[in-house]
Design a protein around this nucleic acid. Sequence first.
DNA 1: GATGAAACGATCATTTA
DNA 2: TAAATGATCGTTTCATC
Lengths: 157, 157
Amino acid sequence: MPESIELDPVDLRILTALQNNARLTNKELAAAAGIAASTCLDRVNRLRESGVIRGYRVDVDAERLGRPLRALLHVRVQPHRRPLVDPFVEHVLALPETRELYHLTGPDDFLVHVAAKNAADLQRLVLDEFTARDEVALVHTDLIFQHWDGGPLLPPG
Amino acid sequence: MPESIELDPVDLRILTALQNNARLTNKELAAAAGIAASTCLDRVNRLRESGVIRGYRVDVDAERLGRPLRALLHVRVQPHRRPLVDPFVEHVLALPETRELYHLTGPDDFLVHVAAKNAADLQRLVLDEFTARDEVALVHTDLIFQHWDGGPLLPPG
DNA sequence: GATGAAACGATCATTTA
DNA sequence: TAAATGATCGTTTCATC
């Protein structure tokens, strides 16, 4: 199922254009890719159906939404077993502060990117939503000075 | 400049809808927010101009694009000074493998989320693009088992 | 993959609350 | 000041080549 799809240069131009601005009209997108609008519509539908395009998201400024303090929480879950891990994941994803969650190799099992209102809010989050849970053996918090998104995702050469 | 903006419940409904699907038509968005289309257009334009909305991105499946192996690289840059840090950031952001870059407090200064073709590709990336650089004092690599995005970003209660 | 036509949505000036 | 109406214009979409 998670197969690699054959993408030609036209598909790549479409994806690259959409990664910069996902709200381009179909007409604009067709122009960017150098194809007719109807063809472009076909291509985009195929990319959606094949799962290459998973969705379209708006990029919201957390700072201006009142969550200027971002942090990464390294979390060790013990014992590291499914009956404990699955509910932990569900809990974290349900928190409004959670931006991203990673399940990792290495001593710290999870990494959680959170956005908080201020230091007190972050403290509450760590104490009440993480260390208060039985399966959470350890939480280490690093503040995020700055965060960048990478460029358009492209297939390897 | 990075001020918090006053957002009313209508704005929040608009942002929430767009975070789920940034390609909703203005008409659909207006219906979701319970307002007239023209009003909705106004609101979205204001959210864009005020910087609350930073852009619209397509969510591409890295696996299906031929980059199934994702990892987090913890990188220590020494000495941790601007003349070294700024070019390092620029270098990392220019790599096609980079998905995200964090500048952090704590002993490891940077965290880089990368997407590679396979283990050999990841090894090449670490050796040639990171440890080969003079300012990079240490790289620690954790593989990503799984990665989740958080729900819609909302202002704190 | 392109063309062309019918259906639909975006947009803006104007009106209303 | 903020939202709705309605006319115009542009875009999407689909059958057809």
